[in-house]
């Protein structure tokens, strides 16, 4: 565990000067990569280490985003408090829905579909609820006191990157510490063989719900940061199926069930979407038909996803970095 935490600290120190070196447009890409990483790290805890395949992480992300946005707009509270509240709300929602799914023994595809249904129900509820702005969504105030407490900076300020980096490091550290604890080892035992773990005295249901709750809370942090950074949340941006996919993709491409996989996946995916955007804006001669079209970024993700699933099921990290056992 100490070794992993040291590696994590090195990663943090290495990334910290990035916004000072990168042009402003690239900093936005870097922030997106960190956001991807936060979501994927959280998804990976529940679905990779916990073995509970979630197709509905948008639920937790959206609860974090909306809670932070609402507390900031309505009560003028600091986004830090908003994120903490969002963590609590998402963890409670995750624990409740997770309890239902685990209690009624939903497995595999059924579990995935249930998580998806819960996220969709939240999206539909938000769409028709005046309290949270309905289909229009919520816009956070741009003006006001700037600083670390309000997390309000000038557009393109390196501070946004540092906040995201801090939150990402915190998420990974949480996962590392948890995995090394007794609870984490029990969780892995439950994933590997539920019956054997139960026979050895592990409280199966409690450990699954712990994994879902912690994963939900970490995802809510990403959602909270999203609303602070983009200053806007809507039902589709917060609870849409594409959000759930964004949590899954980096983890799968980097390597499911590994600590570093989601980070590698996020570092690969975020620049890809930027590349696609550039290609569409100013395509080379032979690709002139791409001018102004959309969809290319997702096509790239999709191809990468298909290739990874078919050719390297353990992901980039599992394929290239880890010693074969």
């Amino acid at each position: 565990m100490t070794r992993r935490l040291i590696v994590l600290a090195v990663i943090g120190v290495a990334l910290a000067p990035l916004p000072l070196l990168l042009p402003a447009a690239q900093e936005a890409v870097a922030v997106r990569a960190l956001l991807f990483a936060m979501m994927a790290v959280a998804w990976n805890l529940m679905s990779g280490f916990g073995g509970l395949f979630s197709f509905g992480h948008a639920a937790y992300f959206g609860l974090g985003a909306y809670t932070t946005a609402l507390l900031t707009i309505e009560l003028g509270l600091s986004p830090w408090i908003g994120m903490l509240a969002g963590m609590a709300v998402a963890a409670a929602f995750g624990a409740l829905t997770g309890y239902l799914a685990v209690r009624y023994r939903l497995k595999g595809a059924y579990f995935a579909l249930a998580t998806f249904a819960f996220a969709e129900m939240l999206r539909l509820a938000a769409l028709n609820s005046e309290l949270v702005g309905g289909a229009v969504g919520l816009t956070l105030p741009v003006t006001g006191e700037q600083g670390w407490w309000t997390l309000r900076f000038d557009v393109g300020d390196p501070a946004y990157f540092w906040v995201a980096l801090l939150l990402m490091l915190g998420s990974v550290a949480t996962v590392i510490v948890l995995l090394n604890s007794r609870a984490g080892l029990n969780l892995l035992a439950v994933r590997e063989d539920e019956t054997a773990a139960a026979a050895a005295g592990v409280a199966v249901v409690r450990h699954k719900i712990m994994a879902i709750g912690v994963s939900a809370a970490l995802t809510a942090v990403a959602g909270g940061f999203y609303s602070v950074y983009y200053l806007f949340v809507s039902p589709d941006l917060a609870f849409g199926a594409s959000v759930s996919i964004q949590a899954i993709l980096p983890a799968v491409i980097g390597g499911v069930g590994t600590v570093w996989g989601p980070l590698i996946g996020a570092a690969v995916l975020a620049p890809l979407s930027d590349m696609a955007a550039t290609l569409v804006r100013t395509p080379p001669e032979f690709l002139a038909f791409l001018q102004g079209r959309s969809g290319l970024d997702v096509i790239m993700y999709a191809v990468l996803l298909i290739v990874v699933v078919l050719a390297m099921p353990r992901g980039l990290y599992g394929r290239f970095a880890r010693r074969p056992r």
Partner: peptide, 29 residues
Amino acid sequence: TMGGSLAAQLLLTLGIAMLLENSLLLAFS
């Protein structure tokens, strides 16, 4: 992916769906 993990099949068909949908988006906007 037959006989593989459920996640692999789910992710593969998801990738195919994303590829088809966005190819249509690219082709016909």
